[in-house]
């Protein structure tokens, strides 16, 4: 496989990696905290794309994220913070 065929990382990612600075500083990177499978706190939410009993799809700057689970409850949703509760089965990054 030729070098040009390889998918190259964006320059910002490469700079962060080279300078060993926290990736939080990268534009469009969201911050997510998962407490067991009970609660998830996401900073950098840009809205809900879909919501039903078993899955919630959240829009972020970079990619949509889908959470699978049972009886998922959106505990709170303010400007950029999103708190989801319920037994979370899996998290899918829809890149």
């Amino acid at each position: 496989m030729s070098r040009s065929a390889k998918k190259r990382r964006p320059i910002s990612v490469r700079v962060v990696k080279a300078l060993e600075i926290p990736p939080d500083l990268l534009p469009g990177v969201f911050h997510m905290e998962v407490l067991g499978n009970l609660e998830m706190v996401l900073q950098g939410c840009q809205g809900i794309l879909s919501y039903d009993n078993k899955s919630v799809c959240i829009a972020t700057a970079k990619m949509p994220v889908r959470f699978w689970g049972e009886n998922l409850t959106i505990q709170s949703m303010t400007g950029h913070q999103f708190i989801l509760r319920g037994p979370i089965r899996s998290i899918e990054f829809l890149d």
Partner: peptide, 17 residues
């Protein structure tokens, strides 16, 4: 929900059934 939250309205404990 997105429009309401964007406008700063308070919504909590959302569940679907």
């Amino acid at each position: 929900l997105n429009q309401a939250v964007e406008d700063g309205l308070q919504i909590w404990n959302m569940s679907q059934k």
